[in-house]
Every structure is written in C-alpha cells, then in structure tokens.
C-alpha cells in the first residue's frame, strides 16, 4: 500500500490573462465564461457575496460597503453595489436575467470584519452581515458557507467553471 500523502488544499488555478475579473469596492460582476475567475480584494467590514448556479454555469460577486441605500439614494442609483440592499437585489436580478434560477443559487459570504473595540459604535460590519442574511433569507437563498468577522483583511475568489470559492487572508488560502 502506498503511503498516504498529505495533499495541500486545492488552490484556485491562475486564470489566463484577461480572465481575472476584479470587483472593486461597490462593484458587481456576473460571468459565465468558464475560464474566468472573479475576485475581490481587501474586504474589511464590507461584505463580499458570491452566488453560483451550477446548472446554468453562472457566477456572480458583489463587494458591498454599507448596509442600507437609504443612507444616500442618489449614490445607490449610481452604484447599487455600494449598499447591501441594492447590491443584493442588483446581483440577483442580473443573474436571473442571464438564465440563473433562484432555486439553484448557492450563496457564500466573506468579510463583515471590525476593528478592535469597534463593537459598540459604527458596527458597520455587523450591520452589513445582518442585512445580507435577512435579504438572502427573504429570497429563500441559504448561505452555504461563510467567513465573517475579525480583523484580518480578506480576498474572495470564485471560479466560474466550478463555483469553487476561496478566501485569501494574510497569505493563507482556504476553501470557503
């Protein structure tokens, strides 16, 4: 019998040039190109949401900064991805219009961190997360996995071909 090898955790493969789709703060990206990888960097108290429909082969990601669009309806109109409420609605609508089906969607969430001692004020991360959960629940979408809270910055990747989702934080990569 061959000895058991410890295999390193599978990492997201490096996409070809031009196939890495970057989601900036307040951005939303939906893709069906199987060679593409969608990524967002530097999630602090912002929340990153990925939605994936394996049957339709569609992946989407949003990097949302603040909980509610009532903070600034004008900015929400220009950049719906800035807020969790308008961001989730826009991401969902875009994916459904491209052929994804709600009952197939798998959701994963990262971010919603907070600085030390921040529990009592601002609470932006916690509120982002609470609103996000509520909205997904209302839409009958369950969060399959998540990595939220804490102080570490996180980058979130999703591979369009497989829907595999990874987190990179302070040099360490893990599957979400």
């Amino acid at each position: 019998m061959s000895p058991t090898l410890t295999r390193p955790a599978p990492t997201i493969r490096r996409p070809a040039k031009g196939k890495l789709l970057i989601v900036d703060i307040s951005g939303i990206v939906v893709a069906r190109d199987p060679e593409a990888v969608i990524v967002t960097y530097s999630l602090g108290s912002c929340v990153g949401l990925t939605l994936y429909d394996a049957t339709a082969g569609i992946a989407g990601m949003a990097h949302m900064m603040l909980p509610l669009s009532k903070t600034s309806p004008a900015k929400a109109e220009a950049k719906p991805g800035m807020f969790v409420d308008t961001g989730v609605a826009t991401l969902l609508r875009t994916m459904l219009s491209q052929g994804a089906r709600k009952q197939n969607l798998v959701a994963k969430v990262a971010g919603a961190g907070s600085p030390l001692g921040n529990e009592k004020v601002f609470k932006i991360g916690q509120r982002n997360y609470t609103i996000l959960r509520k909205l997904l629940w209302k839409n009958d979408i369950l969060i399959e996995s998540e990595q939220v809270g804490g102080q570490a910055p996180r980058s979130l990747f999703i591979e369009v071909a497989t829907g595999r989702t990874h987190i990179k934080s302070r040099g360490e990569e893990s599957e979400l």
């Binding site: 703060i25 530097s42 999630l43 602090g44 108290s45 912002c46 900064m65 603040l66 971010g111 961190g113 907070s114 600085p115 030390l116 001692g117 921040n118 004020v121 601002f122 932006i124 991360g125 804490g150 102080q151 570490a152 910055p153 302070r170 040099g171």
Partner: peptide, 19 residues
C-alpha cells in the same frame, strides 16, 4: 478608522487597530 472599516485602502495590517 471609518476608512479602514470600509476597506478603503487596506494593507495586510487590515483592521488590527483599536477604536
């Protein structure tokens, strides 16, 4: 702290600061 919170130009120091 607000800008770090929102991830506006975070380094690997991330949110490791005390408010």
């Amino acid at each position: 702290m607000l800008c770090m919170n929102a991830g506006l130009g975070l380094g690997s120091d991330g949110l490791s600061y005390r408010l």
